[in-house]
Design a protein around this nucleic acid. Structure first.
Lengths: 154, 154
DNA sequence: ACATGATAGACAACCCGGTTAACTATATAG
DNA sequence: CTATATAGTTAACCGGGTTGTCTATCATGT
């Protein structure tokens, strides 16, 4: 009895949170104290070419309003800037500022070093197997989960 | 470049969400459509003996007010009931109702079958290795993470 | 050239799960 | 008996979501 089944999902969440927490501790040390856990993923989704609220909402699987709000806050704290699309004055393209790109680059590097620590701890083979197993059990598209509000709410 | 480092945390989150989503789809089919993703974990934390808001807050690592609110909603939807502690009339002990215990038991069974599906897909050895690796990389205490608000916010 | 329909964005009201601060009521220790 | 600690409640707020409604612009067909 006692259902060890709870163990698996909890460990997955915990592992995620541990990585995210270490990332943000390090990001804070490196000059990005204001950034919030999802901002890195959002900026990753914005990409180098920039995007609009509607597009961002589609790729993240949230409403355009939610995406718009997130862009608002990223703009407010200086990680994103908006400009109107000259070809379609309805559209406002959100692009990463240098500060935003810096955060994204640092996030990537920090994640890489965290992964390296895991590789050290578990061995590269074990870690590789873990990643491959996780890929097997999760959808192809990392972003679009088709679970409403999967971002931000348990 | 291109930092495969994002892959690991995202896959962990995704895997968690996939399990949670399947759990709640099945729970809804089995007569618990109103339950929310964290409620299962909260009820697990409440335990068979019941608990108070302050205690629950401590074990979950959230404020007593947050714990109290969660108990409020669980009470409203009929999964928990409160009664004053005769030995200390300040305390209100929240206990699972039969409906709540039913949800908890079903959750445990569903998680077990989901885990079994993973074992089928990956092989018991691989899954075991995965669980053991996750344990290696995460804190001992599954509940108390000491990340403020780790529940519910990315 | 113009009416019509689709699309982008903004705004409001709300939900959920968190936070801190301030308060009441009870218990306990000196 | 007083002082302090504790349990619970309430209120105001935040971050990230939702839906609904509205305006402005674009694109298309007659």
């Amino acid at each position: 009895m006692s259902s060890q089944g709870f163990e698996l999902p909890l460990r997955l969440l915990l592992a995620f949170r541990v990585l995210i927490d270490e990332l943000h501790a390090e990001l804070a040390r490196q000059g990005h104290p204001d950034i919030r856990p999802m901002h890195g993923f959002v900026m990753q989704a914005i990409g180098p070419a920039g995007t609009t609220a509607v597009e961002l909402g589609r790729t993240l699987g949230v409403s355009k309003q939610a995406a718009g709000k997130t862009i608002d806050t990223l703009e407010r704290i200086g990680y994103v800037e908006r400009s109107i699309d000259p070809h379609d004055t309805r559209r406002k393209i959100a692009r990463l500022t240098p500060h935003g790109m810096d955060a994204l680059n640092r996030s990537a590097r920090i994640f890489d070093t965290l992964r390296a620590r895991w590789a050290e701890e578990l061995g590269e083979e074990r870690l590789h197997a873990l990643e491959s197993d996780l890929r097997r059990m999760t959808p192809d598209n990392l972003w679009r989960l088709d679970i409403p509000g999967w971002f931000g709410t348990l």
